[in-house]
Design a protein around this nucleic acid. Sequence first.
DNA 1: AAAAGTCTCAACCGCAGTTAA
DNA 2: GTTAACTGCGGTTGAGACTTT
Length: 256
Amino acid sequence: MGRIPKEINKGAWSREEDDILSKYVAIHGEGKWQKVAQNAGLKRCGKSCRQRWLNYLKPGIKRGDISTDEEDMIIRLHRLLGNRWSLIAKRLPGRTDNEIKNYWNTNLSKRLQKQPTSSSFSVSLQNNHNKCGHIAPEAPRPRRLKIVHQYNKILENNNNGSECDQGSDETSIADFLIDNDHQDNLLACDDESNTTNSKIPQMEEDHKKVVSTNSTHNSSSPSDHFHLSSEKFDPLDNLLDVELKKMASFLGLEND
DNA sequence: AAAAGTCTCAACCGCAGTTAA
DNA sequence: GTTAACTGCGGTTGAGACTTT
């Protein structure tokens, strides 16, 4: 009597499940996750299949050993974007939003808490720790695409079709901010060693260069390479102040 | 040695946006 | 225009590993 309960596996994925999913996606491609779950014979929901694939099985995923360069980039991008892990992940090839989020919550947020700086953003970041130890977003929550669209339109109107070629999706705002960041050399970790242009896809190669550079002609300690020095970030803070104040003003969050 | 406390991270959950019917 | 299904995202949880007492 009654309906037959649908059998759904939960918890850790087995190697067999991983194999089934990998083979299925290799043949049929990504997407249609509900059907993947059904057709592949996996007793998992579509969301679970998607997450497993994107976070662990997809070729090119790097696991663990987050380099100091990547760490540095995560901190910088977090200051730009807040808890927009998917956007941050897009700038770190091979890293997933989940991994970055975990790394932030378990390592960086604690470390930054211990590192008082004069940076207004760092201070606000520290103040935004909630009681659970998680970080409240700096920037408006990413999910409100509509409001970001509106923001873009208003910016366009205000700027009369300004020089910034902003796209229509939220990534454009991130790109816009980050591109400005690049232009101002704000992503360069050390002024003197800023010869690599710090383009993120080149990060692994850059990391080698930075390591060697730091060890040869940089007077600062390796840890200085990573630390959020207030002097280093003042230009970024100014830029962010302008952009985020615009957005905060638009969202009516000026007092936050 | 073992109990208690803490940390890590894979996975789940629920919400919101998008797409298709 | 409406609705349901699907997808993507960030927050949160909890099991297992690790550390401390």
